[in-house]
Design a protein around this nucleic acid. Sequence first.
DNA 1: CCACTTTTCTCCACATAATGACACTATAGT
DNA 2: ACTATAGTGTCATTATGTGGAGAAAAGTGG
Lengths: 162, 162
Amino acid sequence: MSLCGEKWEKVVNYFRGISAVNLDAKGRLSLPSKYREGLGSDSLVVTIDTEDSCLQLYPMDRWSVIEKQLESLPTFNSHARRIQRLLLGHATECEMDSQFRILLPSLLREHAQLEKKVMLIGQGKRFEIWSESIWLKVRQEWIDQKNGGSENLPTALDELSL
Amino acid sequence: MSLCGEKWEKVVNYFRGISAVNLDAKGRLSLPSKYREGLGSDSLVVTIDTEDSCLQLYPMDRWSVIEKQLESLPTFNSHARRIQRLLLGHATECEMDSQFRILLPSLLREHAQLEKKVMLIGQGKRFEIWSESIWLKVRQEWIDQKNGGSENLPTALDELSL
DNA sequence: CCACTTTTCTCCACATAATGACACTATAGT
DNA sequence: ACTATAGTGTCATTATGTGGAGAAAAGTGG
């Protein structure tokens, strides 16, 4: 169906959706088949998230854009330096093996407290990797807080019509 | 009978009405025939509802509008990230097969507690998918609570003329 | 009310993907 | 050099997804 749909997929390549995956004993994550062609033969970059305990996974081409942005931040701003050190400092290039697995570096696994059960969450240009238990916990919190006080939301969000 | 009616359907494509459907053993939902031409050959996107335990089903073209809005939200705003993670993070593209069935991902089925008996509810630009038992329960609650005090309604709602 | 058509459901067979296990390699530390 | 640890590649098993077809049910028209 849909040449149209196909083109969209291939050109825009937007990652969506959640998958439960198991790391193997050595900490390798095998990428779900539905994303494989979208990732192409590109290598990937994993780094930490500066706000939450999860990891961020980028295709190399997307990451290099971010890297440039990070570089151009003002050197003498302490927030900027924090971000640079955290993101650039933890960014690790990974290659998929013949079975589409990537090894997540142990230091990064520790940071996100990844054990066996892991969630892979599409976030458009990137993925997030969460420990299953942490994900379930925070997801529940987010759901519970509903859209409670909408006073502090950015206008763009306030105006979202789904 | 309605060259007019036909055109309306095809151009405006507004989903209405409720259907009881059964998922098969693998969790596939077969779309009622009356909606099939309205959905065209486009693929579909399912995601969770952040307020209730049901799923939201969009034709891809409608969903991509929402996605653009989500994408443009600021990365370092925590409310924005919450919404992005919940909506984008659960959004899954589904293709209809030759029998107009779509597989609902098991994690999403769990979220909405979908077993065999399911309700598909047209909501204009999208559908909602509810577990039959939950639907019956909340529907009864909504009916019972009438519109009691209208003091707390948002103005737009207050001014609605049906 | 009956015969016919269309739609929906259920089941089965098959294909593909995900997992876990294992053996082998490379590296660093003792 | 030997051992312990981390990393890599391959394979078998299991789980999951896919496609198709017939039975059952619902809808339609005479």
